[in-house]
Design a protein around this nucleic acid. Structure first.
Length: 405
DNA sequence: ATGTGC
């Protein structure tokens, strides 16, 4: 476990020794130098006790993504905007033998359009009881978020059949707290002169953030449940939750709070999905008792190899390249009407999830249960993106004209 | 990440 800073007390570490940084990856997982530097910088932060870096580690805005950090102080900026973001794995009541990719893709295009406000759902009632304004409830969002129908590609150990069945189909939902988490983070930045020294968890500011953080975490899990229910509704089937694992949050521990940033916060006895890209295999793993050493954190996905900006121009330059981005090696399809997003989320932007799983297993953190293949991935539907944009521009010009008189 | 920013 993490090394303890001595008797001076962990709250007063500016001149103390830096926190221990442990790497749970091998040289086979290429890690960008700037991400390692961000880990090293974090080790100097006041109250920081122990940091774990995972094989999907990559640079982020306020700190690296793919890490878990135990600290006596709270660092909201290490968690960022999408508080409570995570992955939900569901079993669909839709046997693989009856499953048709094209038909399912057509149905799933309706995922975010139906009058889901009329859906009768306990999850929806619960989410609405948490926050009055919940207009983004049941929506996936952008970036790396998705809702994907999967099937077992390979069972990797005999015990896997307890959880997963080759004859069934599954749903992996990656989403978070949408504009709720974004507003909590914006208010936290505005309400604190600096977050450089972190917040005392017992202070008013610390409690204020923790309280709203907890709400985001709960809301995000309900959001994933509702997305799954909406997917089931348009596919005319049912869903059953297998595992919901957040990877963007803090959790109270014996000696402080563990900050999970793009690192799945797992529990003993559960299972967890590790997402590949939309054109590569994802995995389901069982966290082992050995994961206690990494603060019960493991990787949450393949991890980016190229940042979003870097991807533009690399692919999607021709019509055939763009069409290729929406197909995969298993005959699966992706629904993504946003060209830029499709390029940013191309399989080539990501590292290999198989290597991530191998590194985690090699460090005794997980046992791989299954490889899962992508059949239909819902990213974003935009009926007429360009027209909407033109309308917006027209409205703005008209407003300006009216202002001038 | 964010009904994204000019």
């Amino acid at each position: 476990m993490g090394n303890f800073i001595g008797d001076s007390g962990p709250d007063t570490t500016p001149c103390g020794k830096p926190a221990a940084v442990a790497h749970y990856f091998t040289e086979k997982s290429w890690i960008e130098g700037s991400a390692l530097q961000q880990l090293a910088d974090m080790a100097q932060m006041p109250g920081m006790l122990s940091i774990a870096g995972f094989p999907d580690l990559h640079p982020g805005k306020y700190g690296p993504v793919g890490m878990a950090a135990l600290s006596t102080r709270l660092y909201p900026q290490l968690i960022g905007t999408d508080i409570g973001c995570g992955m939900g794995l569901f079993e669909l009541d839709l046997p693989l033998r009856k499953f048709k990719i094209e038909k399912a893709a057509e149905a799933l295009r309706q995922l975010e359009t139906p009058a889901f406000g009329q859906m009768n759902s306990e999850a929806m009632d619960n989410a609405r009881s948490l926050v009055a304004k919940a207009d983004t409830l049941g929506t996936i969002g952008g970036g790396n978020h998705f809702c994907e129908i999967q099937a077992v590609d390979e069972l990797l150990c005999p015990e896997a059949s307890v959880h997963l069945d080759r004859q069934k189909t599954y749903l992996l939902v990656h989403s978070g707290s949408r504009n709720l988490g974004a507003s909590v983070f914006a208010e936290t930045l505005a309400g604190n002169a600096s977050l450089d020294e972190g917040l005392d968890p017992a202070s008013d500011a610390g409690i204020a953030w923790l309280t709203r953080h907890d709400l985001c975490v709960d809301w995000a899990a309900l959001n994933r449940q509702i997305i799954a229910e909406r997917a089931a509704a348009v596919l005319r089937t049912e869903v059953r939750l297998i595992a919901d694992v957040p990877h963007n949050l803090v959790r109270a521990a014996a000696h402080g709070h563990v900050h999970y940033k793009g690192a799945a916060a797992v529990t003993a006895g559960g299972i967890a999905p590790i997402a590949g890209s939309r054109a590569s295999l994802s995995y389901v793993v069982e966290p082992l008792a050995g994961a206690a050493i990494s603060h019960w954190a493991i990787s949450h996905g393949a991890g980016r190899k190229y940042d979003r900006r870097n991807m533009h121009g690399r692919t999607g330059n021709t019509r055939s390249e763009r069409e290729g981005l929406l197909r995969n090696a298993w005959g699966g399809v992706a629904i993504c009407d946003d060209r830029r997003l499709a390029v940013e989320e191309a399989a080539g932007a990501y590292k290999n999830a198989a290597q991530v799983v191998e590194d985690l297993a090699g460090h005794g953190l997980v046992r791989p249960l299954a490889a899962m293949k992508p059949l239909v991935t819902y990213k974003k539907v935009d009926i007429d993106h360009d027209e909407a944009k033109r309308d917006k521009g027209r409205e703005r010009r008209q407003e300006r004209r009216q202002k001038r008189g």
